[in-house]
Design a protein around this nucleic acid. Sequence first.
RNA 1: GUCCCAGUAGCUCAGCAGGAUAGAGCGACAGCCUCCUAAGCUGUAGGUCGUGAGUUCGAAUCUCGCCUGGGACGCCA
Length: 556
Amino acid sequence: MNIAEQVQTKLKEAIKEAVIKANLATEENIPMCLLETPRDKAHGDYSTNMAMQLARIAKKAPRAIAEELIANFDQSKASIEKLEIAGPGFINFYMNNSYLTELIPTIINAGEKYGETTIGNHQKVQVEFVSANPTGDLHLGHARGAAVGDSLCNILDKAGYDVSREYYINDAGNQINNLALSVDARYFQALGTDKPMPEDGYHGQDIIGIGKRLAEEFGDKFAALSDEERFDTFREYGLKYEMEKLKQDLENFRVRFDVWYSETSLYNNGKIDQALKALRDNGHIYEEDGATWLRTTPMGDDKDRVLIKQDGSYTYLTPDIAYHKDKLERGFEKLINIWGADHHGYIPRMKAAIEALGYERDALEVEIIQLVHLYKDGEKMKMSKRTGKAVTMRELVEEVGLDAVRYFFAMRSADTHLDFDLDLAVSQSNENPVYYAQYAHARISSILRQGAEQGLVAGDAADYSLIGAEKEVELLKKLGEFPQAIAEAAQKRIPHRITNYIYDLASAFHSFYNAEKVLDPENKQKTQARLALIKSVQITLRNALALIGVSAPEKM
RNA sequence: GUCCCAGUAGCUCAGCAGGAUAGAGCGACAGCCUCCUAAGCUGUAGGUCGUGAGUUCGAAUCUCGCCUGGGACGCCA
């Protein structure tokens, strides 16, 4: 807990004590103490609405309650300069903010660890994201999912959760067969033979590329094979090719997974049978119309779901249930799945399945990534795997730049539709907020370099009592908020809370930069102290950017 | 028909564990570089928070209805 958090905790305690001392509520029915930072500086550094909340319990006017609270308030608890009643019954606290300078050495000592909190309490969390079928290039939606998922994992990790990142490979079932058939068609086409694509084939450029590569490398060698042999060969080749490409693309997107989990493995190691048995033993399975059904309706689903089709094969749901059973058996207390919006209807049945397996349905949490629409030249572009005309993640990164893409996706709440204006993102103008934050970091780096040239190194012993100008105090307050921003982002699963923080911090720095000069040859003491201040801003900014996978450049 | 997401300034969006005069960027307008990076800063203008009711001391925030836009509702994956 840093000094700013400690002070807030003390304040809250002092407020509670005052409530009890004034006999306004008992230990049991005291409302949760809410301490907030007023938007308007004139309303002090902190304020509480405790008096208003007590109005119902104590049956008195809020302002009268506030009077009593103040009378019973122990001001020596925290560095309070004055406090007053305002508006409908707020109590505003004006702090002596000198304690805030303690943040500077705290942050410098913590370095890249600054921002860590323990609210996660080592809860074992597994986050499954992207999990795109290995049948083509990752497109915009996947890119958004990858950016949000990875950022969320970074945040959870920083907040003290034990996070595991996982990618579920759909390497069984129809889509892989279609992949093999598509490769087959492209192979023959590359050889100059006209062979039609399968009905549900994948028309992406990459599959055309595979066909060409096969034709170039092996000539017509495969044409001689039996259809069956060729199918198996192409199936395996296509899968391997697609997976390698996926991994590389994600790596280039600064996303790494701890586990790549194969759907096929569930077939091979009996996990599907075990899951079916568990569901049967728990009495949730019945046979009808020649199919095997899971009774999900009692657990909040619209209708029951087929597990084994008439033809004896599994539906998509069946191995997925086995997969989730396996996740839970691996000891994860919380499963967070990041799904595209087109899968949202799938949530009730998966939660029902988890309940049917005998687990808490809320062990599964699904974060929905809404659609991305790309606009270019004011025109909306379609993203469809079918037509193969979709803009891929790779193309997007090449065109816009990785930092901008990652920032842009992390910036908006994930469950709302996103219009991605390509022209805007491409133009390296100040409309792109990522530059705003990176620029702050580069500016700091530049000043630190120049300080070092003068023999002044940030972090060397300095007199922090020289820090206290208005802009400096605002900057310090922002710095102190970082751990709470992370805690909130983690608990609410909202990475965009971090980009908001980044923006605020960068803004506080730019504002400070324009108001005060860091390097002052006339005043070495002050220079030394301010170098340490901006050093702590640099550390915090870099840590925050790292959470969303954006680089922190030394120069721009 | 059922379900999900959205509707807040001209545009793109924050705010939604109910709190003070609803914020930011872009765009518009007016200022700031003999000075550490002007990709910056400072200020002005701009809003019936889709709509109607309800809950209460208080609603952009919670509940219900309605309107508009987008999406999902397979023995596909």
